[in-house]
Amino acid sequence: MALYILKRILSIMFSVIIVTIIIFSLMHSIPGGPFDEDKMPLSKAAKEKIMKMYGLDQPLYIQYLKYIWNALHFKFGRSYQSPGEEMIDLINRTFRVSAFLGGLGLFWAIPIGILLGIISAVKANSFIDYLFTLFSSYAISVPIYVTAIFMIFTFSLGLGWFPTGGFEGLKTWVMPIIAYGLYPSGIIIRYTRNSMLEVMNEPYILTAKSKGLPLKSIIVNHVFKNAMIPIITIILPIFARIITGSIFVETIFRIPGLGKYFVSSITQRDYPLMMTLMLLVTFLLGFTYLSIDILYTIIDPRVRLWGKEIRK
């Protein structure tokens, strides 16, 4: 088991390195630099001095290696957009807000998604199934900012329950939390439904039925347990979506989170911030991968046995 986890960690490190190289080269192929004249009017000498200060006059591969070396020592430099604070502080301050709202979004989305998915599967092809399928398709495919606008129309302008935006206490949190959880809930409904339906067609469910077990106990003990396994794997794309979702949710509801920096770091050519954000994203994704794999071996004994056989 320890060896397996070590191997997984190594492979995650490998993909993080690949991704950083790709992002670094993409980033530097964007035409224009952070201190061009259209962004700040500087004399040639001053620009050269600033470029030197940030190490931007060196060849790219040295810049890259330097960045990685510093990042390994938890030194991420300073963002060009807010040079007054260390990168760690900037990320800490903003990521906390996004993680708080995004986390609460997942907190309602996971149980509700699983519940609606189960109901949908048990009542397959009924009106209620259509209704939930429609909801999940909506949540998955329609951009989150459109839903945010619909929510502002109904709850802020129409009913006057919540303010249209801001980050000042419970009332301002409700709509962003709903918005954050919408995509995850949709995708969990879909996968729970499909996974449940697949298990329901297995022969051992027929056996359980012919033994005369009550339907409720079949659904809870036999179908649900087996259907849960593939659902774990879909947590992964959800994490990516929470991050890209934050770009829109936080713009519309005027939340001081991480979201806006994804866009501004690209438009402002803020190289250190961009790299740090991408490191954060790939690390989050990598560790989700890892925890999924470990969870899998705990939940599904078949995977565990398979792993042992390979090791022999």
Partner: peptide, 19 residues
């Protein structure tokens, strides 16, 4: 395929559009 799925597609699109 893996590389394209690790980076969220919206961010990738943003990069390419700015390039």
């Amino acid at each position: 395929v893996e590389i394209f799925s690790v980076i969220p597609s919206l961010l990738l699109a943003m990069f390419f559009v700015t390039i």
